[in-house]
Structure formats: C-alpha cells, structure tokens
C-alpha cells in the first residue's frame, strides 16, 4: 500500500507540473513537450534498461506518422483509428526487423539503427514518392473528423488527449520497471550470461523491449501527424536522429521522469537559443559533451538523489 501510494504520488507530482506548464505556457509548446517526452520514453527505455543506444529513432517515428497519415489522407477521417493504425504499424515493423537488430552487439546496434533512419528517409522521400508526395508532404488537417467527447481537432482538447496518452505510456513504463521483465532487462544489460543461467532468453527479453520501445516511438509519430495534420519525410531526417538521445541524456538515462524533464529543457532551450543564434547545434553539441564529461547523469539524474534525500528526511517520522 505504502509503495502504491509513493509512486502514485510521484506520478501525480510530475504530471501536476505538466498541467502547470499548460496553464503558464503557450499551448503549442506544452503539446510539443508532451509528444516529445513520449517520443523519448522509448529511447530512454532502450538506453537505460537494455543498454541499447539508438540513433535511429526517427525511422520508427516516421513509421507511425506515415501509417496514420496514409489512413487520414487516403482512407478515413477518424484520428483515433489513425493513431491505432500507427501503433499497429510500429508493432509490425518492430516484429519484422527486431529479430535481426536485437542480435547485434550494442555498438553495431547503434550504427545499424542510424543507417535504418537514412533508408527510411529515402524510402519516404524518393522511393514511395508517388504516394508520399515526396518533400511536399501530405496535408490532411481538413480530413480529420471531429471526435465525440475529446475533439482531437481542437488544440485544447488535443492537449488533454496527448496528456492522457503520455500518462498511460508513463504508467506502463513504471509498471514494467517494477516487473520481472524490468529486472530481466536490467540483467541483460549488465550480465548476459547470468540471464542465461536463470533460464531466461536474452533474445526474447531484448526483442520484447525493442517492440515496446519502438511502438512507443511510433505512437509519438502518430500523435505528431494528427497534431500537425501534415507529414513530410523531414520527420525521418537523420539530422534529427540525435534529438531523442540528447533529451534522454539531458533528462537522465533510465530515470522515469528523465524524458519529461529532458523534453521540457530541450524544447525550452531550443526556443530560447534559436532566438539569439541561428545555429544551436554548437550549443547542443557542447551541452552533450559537457553532460558526458560531468558524469552522464543528466538533469533529473542529478536532481533525483537530492530530492530523495529531502523527501526521506521529511518522510522519516511517519515510517
């Protein structure tokens, strides 16, 4: 009971902050942060729990975004169905390529994923140009029908929707973290042989983690597509491959709040800095190097122990 109370309090706290964001910051900014955080959760899980670094997340993002967009552009009008199709596409792609990828050593995994992002980019830009309209992209904002209850076409309703979705994903990861599966993931990261001795399969654990993480990423892609009512190959652009990795690190690898904190900091900085200097790569790059030299813990990773200490001091009399 105490445990349940503790972590539900944690969740509430984090999302309370997000609600504050909604109140005090412009709506597009808030929506962007939430989708970005969802996008990063997959990468964070892969890196923090399984030890796989992926510079290829845009590929999976694009898969979700394009699945949703194809539906909304060519076939239907219901954004919910569109998003569900995006998720399905994410699962399907992960099922197909996962078996090849998760066998790789983590360094090769990183390289292969980035290469994948490039391929997906060209696939959508050139090879499938007849249905993706190449760089012009697909515009379908007007196709999106209003949905009963929460109308996803209305930004304020859409905010609540993505908020709930992100919340659901977050709870899922929290649950996974505490489950046997979470422990197995940790174990494959640190010691493959021990996992084998315990009678679990490294391959299966990684495969499952791969599916979960990349489906989350595809979901984020779908959300982007519905939000903008537009998709172009730019979403898979390899030059943005580092974004989720940076956000993961910025927030703190493997921490549950990391993606939220990181997405907030990153989006905020990007908006702030690009107001002053046009090339924020310099800044982001130096920041990355700095995080690595400073001990790779990120913002939340550095804050967490401090918060925990203050928290436990306060909590002591009651326990």
């Amino acid at each position: 009971m105490v445990k349940l109370f503790n972590w539900s309090r944690g969740i509430l706290l984090a999302f309370f902050c997000l609600l504050l964001v909604r109140v005090f910051l412009p709506l597009p900014f808030a929506i962007e942060i939430i989708i970005f955080a969802t996008y990063t959760m997959g990468c964070n899980f892969l890196l923090g729990r399984v030890g796989f670094i992926s510079f290829g997340q845009p590929a999976y993002l694009a898969v979700g975004a394009y699945a949703t967009s194809f539906y909304l552009f060519y076939f239907g009008t219901n954004p919910i169905i569109g998003i569900l199709l995006g998720i399905l596409a994410g699962v399907a792609v992960a099922l197909i390529i996962g078996p090849f990828f998760v066998r790789l050593r983590s360094d090769y995994f990183a390289l292969v994923n980035l290469a994948l992002a490039v391929i997906v980019f060209y696939l959508f830009e050139k090879v499938l140009a007849s249905i993706t309209h190449g760089d012009n992209g697909l515009w379908f904002l007007t196709n999106i029908a209003s949905t009963p209850g929460l109308d996803l076409g209305v930004p304020s309703d859409f905010f609540i929707f993505v908020f709930l979705v992100a919340f659901g994903v977050w709870v899922l990861y929290k649950y996974l973290d505490d489950s046997i599966f979470g422990a197995c993931c940790q174990a494959t990261k640190t010691n493959e042989d021990k996992v084998k001795f315990l009678g679990y399969s490294n391959f299966k654990i990684r495969f499952l983690a791969f599916i979960i993480a990349n489906t989350t990423t595809a979901l984020a892609g779908s959300l982007y597509a519905v939000y903008f009512g537009f998709v172009s190959p730019e979403i898979a652009s390899p030059s943005r491959a580092a974004d989720p990795v940076i956000v993961t690190l910025l927030g703190g690898v493997g921490t549950l709040y990391g993606p939220i904190v990181g997405a907030f900091a990153y989006t905020g900085m990007k908006d702030l800095i690009s107001g002053y200097i046009s090339n924020w790569e310099l800044f982001i790059g130096l920041l990355l190097v700095f995080i690595m030299l400073a001990g790779e813990k990120g913002i939340w990773g550095s804050l967490e122990p401090v918060l925990k200490r203050t928290f436990s001091k306060k909590g002591k009399p009651t326990t």
């Binding site: 990795v245 690190l249 790059g285 990355l288």
Partner: peptide
C-alpha cells in the same frame, strides 16, 4: 559514442 556525436554536432 554519444560524446563523439556531441563533438560532431558542436
């Protein structure tokens, strides 16, 4: 690898 990516980016 991440650090080197940061260097490249910067």
């Amino acid at each position: 690898m991440i650090a080197s990516f940061g260097i490249l980016f910067a």
